[in-house]
């Protein structure tokens, strides 16, 4: 089970990293196209949706590397109770992931059942970008379960991400 969860997390990580690498291309294309008075109607919207996918699906990676910021003041005061703090943090994260999955699924269902399109010339069915929400919640949930089972991403010291 843990392996399956980890595999799903890896899949999401792969998608989000790929989006990160290619995101600059359509935006550059748009900048150049506009300079030639030929702006597109698709770049604005599709890159926004790509960014949202990147942000939500990136959760699996963020949990695995312990990147989600936590205030560790009390943990510093009561180092012996660290495992209880960790457990509390994980349980709240799981509950919140369930809320994200449930509400995201509801939102996708709402867009699908109402056949809602984006109110732009591109007319994208809104359930497609909104699918990123429940998927992101799923990634957050599964990777947190993996962390609880294996300790991955929990004991990471505050990491240096070159943001």
């Amino acid at each position: 089970m843990i392996n399956l969860a980890r595999q799903i997390g890896r899949g999401m990580t792969f998608v989000s990293i790929t989006l990160m690498i290619v995101l600059c291309l359509p935006i550059t294309y748009e900048a150049v196209a506009r300079a030639f008075n030929a702006p597109t109607i698709w770049v604005f919207e599709t890159t926004l949706y790509a960014f949202i996918f990147l942000g939500f699906l990136g959760n699996a990676l963020a949990v695995r590397s312990g990147a989600h910021f936590r205030v560790m003041i009390l943990v510093g005061v009561f180092p012996k109770a660290k495992k209880y703090f960790d457990l509390t943090a994980q349980l709240f994260t799981l509950a919140f992931a369930v809320l994200i999955m449930a509400s995201g699924s509801y939102f996708v269902w709402y867009a699908l059942s109402g056949s809602i399109l984006s109110a732009t010339m591109l007319e994208i069915p809104m359930w497609i970008p909104q699918l990123s929400i429940p998927l992101g919640g799923l990634g957050l949930f599964l990777q947190t379960v993996v962390s609880m089972a294996t300790g991955e991403g929990v004991d990471e010291e505050i990491q240096v991400f070159g943001d």
């Binding site: 109402g114 056949s115 809602i116 399109l117 984006s118 109110a119 007319e123 809104m126």
Partner: peptide, 8 residues
């Protein structure tokens, strides 16, 4: 803006 409802 009513035109914003064009999606539905």
């Amino acid at each position: 803006l009513l035109d914003n409802w064009s999606g539905t």
